[in-house]
Protein backbone atom coordinates (compact mmCIF):
# COMPACT_ATOMS: atom_id res chain seq x y z
CA UNK A 1 0.00 0.00 0.00
CA UNK A 2 2.75 2.41 0.99
CA UNK A 3 4.50 1.74 -2.29
CA UNK A 4 1.37 2.18 -4.34
CA UNK A 5 0.44 5.43 -2.66
CA UNK A 6 3.93 6.86 -3.07
CA UNK A 7 3.88 6.66 -6.86
CA UNK A 8 4.13 10.08 -8.46
CA UNK A 9 1.75 9.16 -11.25
CA UNK A 10 -1.12 8.54 -8.85
CA UNK A 11 -0.41 11.55 -6.70
CA UNK A 12 -0.44 13.77 -9.76
CA UNK A 13 -3.70 12.37 -11.06
CA UNK A 14 -5.39 12.77 -7.69
CA UNK A 15 -4.23 16.19 -6.66
CA UNK A 16 -3.42 18.10 -9.84
CA UNK A 17 -6.93 18.64 -11.24
CA UNK A 18 -8.13 20.40 -8.08
CA UNK A 19 -4.82 22.16 -7.49
CA UNK A 20 -4.35 23.51 -11.01
CA UNK A 21 -7.93 24.72 -11.25
CA UNK A 22 -7.57 26.41 -7.90
CA UNK A 23 -4.23 28.03 -8.72
CA UNK A 24 -5.39 29.22 -12.13
CA UNK A 25 -8.86 30.50 -11.21
CA UNK A 26 -8.45 31.23 -7.50
CA UNK A 27 -4.93 32.18 -6.46
CA UNK A 28 -3.72 33.73 -9.73
CA UNK A 29 -6.67 36.17 -9.93
CA UNK A 30 -6.09 37.16 -6.31
CA UNK A 31 -2.43 37.94 -7.02
CA UNK A 32 -3.38 39.76 -10.23
CA UNK A 33 -5.72 41.98 -8.25
CA UNK A 34 -2.80 42.78 -5.96
CA UNK A 35 -0.67 43.70 -8.98
CA UNK A 36 -3.39 45.80 -10.64
CA UNK A 37 -3.78 47.74 -7.42
CA UNK A 38 -0.34 49.24 -7.99
CA UNK A 39 -1.20 50.59 -11.43
CA UNK A 40 -3.31 53.16 -13.18
CA UNK A 41 -5.26 50.92 -15.53
CA UNK A 42 -8.59 51.13 -17.32
CA UNK A 43 -8.57 47.64 -18.84
CA UNK A 44 -7.77 48.75 -22.39
CA UNK A 45 -4.97 51.30 -22.41
CA UNK A 46 -1.49 50.85 -21.03
CA UNK A 47 -0.78 50.36 -17.35
CA UNK A 48 1.08 53.10 -15.51
CA UNK A 49 2.89 52.02 -12.39
CA UNK A 50 1.81 54.09 -9.39
CA UNK A 51 3.30 52.24 -6.45
CA UNK A 52 1.10 52.74 -3.44
CA UNK A 53 -0.59 55.88 -4.78
CA UNK A 54 -3.96 54.14 -5.21
CA UNK A 55 -3.91 53.15 -1.55
CA UNK A 56 -2.93 56.64 -0.45
CA UNK A 57 -5.72 58.08 -2.56
CA UNK A 58 -8.23 55.89 -0.69
CA UNK A 59 -7.60 57.89 2.45
CA UNK A 60 -6.81 61.32 1.04
CA UNK A 61 -8.74 62.39 -2.05
CA UNK A 62 -11.45 59.72 -2.28
CA UNK A 63 -14.70 61.33 -1.25
CA UNK A 64 -16.54 58.08 -0.64
CA UNK A 65 -14.08 55.50 0.65
CA UNK A 66 -13.69 56.80 4.24
CA UNK A 67 -17.45 56.76 4.69
CA UNK A 68 -17.71 53.30 3.15
CA UNK A 69 -15.02 52.10 5.52
CA UNK A 70 -16.78 53.67 8.47
CA UNK A 71 -20.01 51.96 7.43
CA UNK A 72 -18.28 48.60 7.28
CA UNK A 73 -16.97 49.15 10.79
CA UNK A 74 -20.45 50.01 12.01
CA UNK A 75 -21.48 46.66 10.58
CA UNK A 76 -18.58 44.97 12.37
CA UNK A 77 -19.63 46.65 15.61
CA UNK A 78 -23.26 45.65 15.21
CA UNK A 79 -22.24 42.06 14.49
CA UNK A 80 -19.91 41.78 17.43
CA UNK A 81 -21.91 43.73 20.00
CA UNK A 82 -25.48 42.86 19.02
CA UNK A 83 -25.56 39.73 16.88
CA UNK A 84 -23.02 37.66 18.78
CA UNK A 85 -24.34 38.38 22.29
CA UNK A 86 -27.89 37.55 21.19
CA UNK A 87 -26.68 34.34 19.54
CA UNK A 88 -24.65 33.40 22.59
CA UNK A 89 -27.56 34.04 24.94
CA UNK A 90 -29.87 31.93 22.79
CA UNK A 91 -27.34 29.12 22.64
CA UNK A 92 -26.90 29.18 26.41
CA UNK A 93 -30.61 29.10 27.11
CA UNK A 94 -31.21 26.35 24.55
CA UNK A 95 -28.31 24.19 25.67
CA UNK A 96 -29.84 23.92 29.14
CA UNK A 97 -32.53 21.81 27.60
CA UNK A 98 -35.81 23.68 27.27
CA UNK A 99 -39.00 22.34 25.81
CA UNK A 100 -38.94 22.45 22.02
CA UNK A 101 -35.17 22.91 21.92
CA UNK A 102 -34.81 21.36 18.48
CA UNK A 103 -37.71 23.34 17.03
CA UNK A 104 -36.15 26.61 18.21
CA UNK A 105 -32.80 25.67 16.70
CA UNK A 106 -34.46 24.79 13.40
CA UNK A 107 -36.38 28.06 13.29
CA UNK A 108 -33.47 30.34 14.17
CA UNK A 109 -31.42 28.79 11.41
CA UNK A 110 -33.97 29.15 8.57
CA UNK A 111 -32.80 32.58 7.29
CA UNK A 112 -29.25 31.21 6.93
CA UNK A 113 -30.22 28.88 4.08
CA UNK A 114 -32.04 31.60 2.11
CA UNK A 115 -30.32 33.52 -0.66
CA UNK A 116 -29.22 37.02 0.32
CA UNK A 117 -30.95 38.23 -2.84
CA UNK A 118 -34.28 37.06 -1.43
CA UNK A 119 -33.47 38.41 2.04
CA UNK A 120 -32.53 41.78 0.51
CA UNK A 121 -35.65 41.99 -1.65
CA UNK A 122 -37.82 40.97 1.29
CA UNK A 123 -36.40 43.64 3.59
CA UNK A 124 -36.68 46.21 0.82
CA UNK A 125 -40.37 45.52 0.94
CA UNK A 126 -40.43 45.68 4.73
CA UNK A 127 -38.74 49.10 4.60
CA UNK A 128 -40.88 50.32 1.68
CA UNK A 129 -42.01 53.86 2.47
CA UNK A 130 -45.61 53.41 1.34
CA UNK A 131 -46.61 49.78 1.76
CA UNK A 132 -43.77 48.38 3.87
CA UNK A 133 -44.54 46.44 7.05
CA UNK A 134 -42.51 48.80 9.17
CA UNK A 135 -44.25 52.00 8.13
CA UNK A 136 -47.66 50.36 8.24
CA UNK A 137 -46.89 49.33 11.80
CA UNK A 138 -45.65 52.83 12.65
CA UNK A 139 -48.83 54.34 11.20
CA UNK A 140 -50.85 51.81 13.18
CA UNK A 141 -49.17 53.05 16.36
CA UNK A 142 -49.91 56.60 15.29
CA UNK A 143 -46.26 57.71 15.41
CA UNK A 144 -46.26 59.61 12.12
CA UNK A 145 -42.98 61.38 12.94
CA UNK A 146 -41.10 58.11 12.66
CA UNK A 147 -42.38 57.27 9.23
CA UNK A 148 -39.25 57.47 7.08
CA UNK A 149 -38.46 56.52 3.52
CA UNK A 150 -35.97 54.18 5.10
CA UNK A 151 -33.94 53.19 2.07
CA UNK A 152 -33.94 56.48 0.18
CA UNK A 153 -33.18 58.68 3.16
CA UNK A 154 -29.39 59.11 3.48
CA UNK A 155 -29.51 59.04 7.27
CA UNK A 156 -31.42 55.75 7.56
CA UNK A 157 -30.38 53.87 4.38
CA UNK A 158 -27.26 52.24 5.76
CA UNK A 159 -28.79 51.27 9.11
CA UNK A 160 -31.66 49.70 7.23
CA UNK A 161 -29.23 47.35 5.54
CA UNK A 162 -27.55 46.52 8.85
CA UNK A 163 -30.77 45.11 10.31
CA UNK A 164 -31.20 42.23 7.86
CA UNK A 165 -27.46 41.52 7.92
CA UNK A 166 -27.70 40.96 11.66
CA UNK A 167 -31.04 39.19 11.41
CA UNK A 168 -29.97 36.68 8.78
CA UNK A 169 -27.01 35.19 10.65
CA UNK A 170 -28.17 35.10 14.27
CA UNK A 171 -29.06 31.43 13.86
CA UNK A 172 -25.71 30.67 12.29
CA UNK A 173 -23.68 31.97 15.22
CA UNK A 174 -26.17 30.53 17.68
CA UNK A 175 -25.52 27.09 16.25
CA UNK A 176 -21.74 27.42 16.44
CA UNK A 177 -22.02 28.52 20.07
CA UNK A 178 -24.50 25.74 20.76
CA UNK A 179 -22.14 23.10 19.35
CA UNK A 180 -19.34 24.59 21.42
CA UNK A 181 -21.36 24.53 24.66
CA UNK A 182 -22.48 20.95 24.04
CA UNK A 183 -18.87 19.85 23.73
CA UNK A 184 -17.97 21.15 27.21
CA UNK A 185 -17.66 18.25 29.60
CA UNK A 186 -20.55 17.94 32.03
CA UNK A 187 -18.06 17.28 34.83
CA UNK A 188 -17.49 21.01 35.20
CA UNK A 189 -21.16 21.65 35.68
CA UNK A 190 -21.60 18.85 38.15
CA UNK A 191 -18.69 20.13 40.21
CA UNK A 192 -20.15 23.64 40.13
CA UNK A 193 -23.52 22.32 41.21
CA UNK A 194 -21.99 20.53 44.16
CA UNK A 195 -20.32 23.80 45.13
CA UNK A 196 -23.76 25.42 45.08
CA UNK A 197 -23.21 27.70 42.08
CA UNK A 198 -26.26 29.28 40.44
CA UNK A 199 -26.99 28.98 36.73
CA UNK A 200 -25.83 32.54 36.21
CA UNK A 201 -22.55 31.87 38.01
CA UNK A 202 -21.82 28.74 36.01
CA UNK A 203 -22.52 30.63 32.79
CA UNK A 204 -20.11 33.43 33.63
CA UNK A 205 -17.41 31.42 35.37
CA UNK A 206 -17.44 28.21 33.37
CA UNK A 207 -19.30 28.33 30.06
CA UNK A 208 -18.00 31.63 28.70
CA UNK A 209 -14.31 31.14 29.60
CA UNK A 210 -14.32 27.59 28.21
CA UNK A 211 -16.02 28.88 25.09
CA UNK A 212 -13.20 31.33 24.35
CA UNK A 213 -11.94 29.51 21.22
CA UNK A 214 -15.48 29.33 19.82
CA UNK A 215 -16.15 32.98 20.61
CA UNK A 216 -12.94 33.80 18.79
CA UNK A 217 -14.05 31.85 15.71
CA UNK A 218 -17.41 33.61 15.69
CA UNK A 219 -15.78 37.00 16.08
CA UNK A 220 -13.45 36.35 13.17
CA UNK A 221 -16.42 35.25 11.04
CA UNK A 222 -18.48 38.27 12.05
CA UNK A 223 -15.52 40.54 11.35
CA UNK A 224 -14.54 39.19 7.94
CA UNK A 225 -18.16 38.74 6.90
CA UNK A 226 -18.86 42.39 7.69
CA UNK A 227 -15.72 43.78 6.10
CA UNK A 228 -16.43 42.01 2.83
CA UNK A 229 -20.20 42.67 2.94
CA UNK A 230 -21.67 43.04 -0.52
CA UNK A 231 -24.77 41.08 -1.52
CA UNK A 232 -27.42 42.51 0.78
CA UNK A 233 -26.33 46.10 0.35
CA UNK A 234 -25.95 45.70 -3.40
CA UNK A 235 -29.52 44.39 -3.62
CA UNK A 236 -31.12 46.84 -1.20
CA UNK A 237 -29.48 50.19 -1.99
CA UNK A 238 -26.43 49.57 -4.19
CA UNK A 239 -24.62 51.97 -1.90
CA UNK A 240 -27.08 54.81 -2.39
CA UNK A 241 -28.58 57.30 -1.97
CA UNK A 242 -25.54 59.33 -2.99
CA UNK A 243 -23.10 56.77 -1.50
CA UNK A 244 -24.64 57.04 1.98
CA UNK A 245 -24.84 53.27 2.39
CA UNK A 246 -21.71 52.29 0.48
CA UNK A 247 -19.31 49.77 1.96
CA UNK A 248 -15.89 49.01 0.42
CA UNK A 249 -17.41 45.98 -1.35
CA UNK A 250 -20.08 47.93 -3.24
CA UNK A 251 -17.77 50.86 -3.93
CA UNK A 252 -15.17 48.51 -5.38
CA UNK A 253 -17.75 46.70 -7.49
CA UNK A 254 -19.07 49.88 -9.04
CA UNK A 255 -15.58 51.25 -9.62
CA UNK A 256 -14.58 48.06 -11.43
CA UNK A 257 -17.67 47.28 -13.44
CA UNK A 258 -19.45 50.60 -13.88
CA UNK A 259 -16.59 53.06 -14.11
CA UNK A 260 -13.87 50.76 -15.45
CA UNK A 261 -11.38 51.93 -12.84
CA UNK A 262 -9.50 48.63 -12.85
CA UNK A 263 -6.43 49.81 -10.97
CA UNK A 264 -8.21 51.85 -8.35
CA UNK A 265 -11.02 49.32 -7.83
CA UNK A 266 -8.44 46.59 -7.42
CA UNK A 267 -6.76 48.60 -4.69
CA UNK A 268 -10.10 48.71 -2.86
CA UNK A 269 -10.58 44.97 -3.38
CA UNK A 270 -7.11 44.19 -2.15
CA UNK A 271 -7.52 46.50 0.79
CA UNK A 272 -10.47 44.35 1.90
CA UNK A 273 -8.27 41.24 1.77
CA UNK A 274 -5.56 42.92 3.79
CA UNK A 275 -7.81 44.35 6.47
CA UNK A 276 -9.52 40.96 6.89
CA UNK A 277 -6.15 39.29 7.39
CA UNK A 278 -4.71 41.87 9.74
CA UNK A 279 -7.79 42.27 11.92
CA UNK A 280 -8.33 38.50 12.14
CA UNK A 281 -4.79 38.24 13.44
CA UNK A 282 -5.47 40.99 15.95
CA UNK A 283 -8.50 39.12 17.25
CA UNK A 284 -6.50 35.90 17.51
CA UNK A 285 -3.81 37.74 19.48
CA UNK A 286 -6.38 39.27 21.82
CA UNK A 287 -7.85 35.86 22.49
CA UNK A 288 -4.57 34.16 23.14
CA UNK A 289 -4.65 34.97 26.83
CA UNK A 290 -8.30 34.10 27.17
CA UNK A 291 -7.63 30.73 25.60
CA UNK A 292 -4.73 30.03 27.89
CA UNK A 293 -6.97 30.80 30.84
CA UNK A 294 -9.58 28.45 29.41
CA UNK A 295 -7.14 25.58 29.25
CA UNK A 296 -6.15 26.31 32.85
CA UNK A 297 -9.69 25.72 34.15
Amino acid sequence: MERMLGKKKYIAVFVLPALLLFLLFGIAPLITTGVYSLFDYDGIGKMDFLGLDNYIELFTTDRYFPRALRNSFILVGASIFIQLPVSLALAMILSRGVKGEKAFRTIYFIPVVISSMVIGQLWMKIFHSEYGLLNIFIRFLGMKDFEYSWLSNPSTAFLSTVVPSIWQYIGYHMLIFYAGIKSISTDYYEAAKIDGATNWQTSIKITIPLLAPVIKTCMVFALTGSLRAFDLIYVMTNGGPNHASDVPGTLMYNNLFRKGLYGYGSAQAFFIVLECLVLSLVISKLFKRAEENASAI
Binding site: F25, G26, A28, P29, L30, T32, T33, Y36, T224, R228, F230, G249, M252, Y253, L256, Y262, G265, S266, A269, F270, I272, V273, C276, L277, S280
Partner: peptide, 11 residues
Protein backbone atom coordinates in the same frame (compact mmCIF):
# COMPACT_ATOMS: atom_id res chain seq x y z
CA UNK B 1 -10.30 33.02 3.52
CA UNK B 2 -10.15 34.68 0.07
CA UNK B 3 -13.03 37.10 -0.32
CA UNK B 4 -14.41 36.20 -3.74
CA UNK B 5 -14.67 39.84 -4.79
CA UNK B 6 -10.88 40.12 -4.62
CA UNK B 7 -10.56 37.65 -7.50
CA UNK B 8 -13.53 38.89 -9.49
CA UNK B 9 -11.98 41.20 -12.07
CA UNK B 10 -9.04 39.00 -13.16
CA UNK B 11 -11.39 36.03 -13.20
Amino acid sequence: MIPTQAALLPL
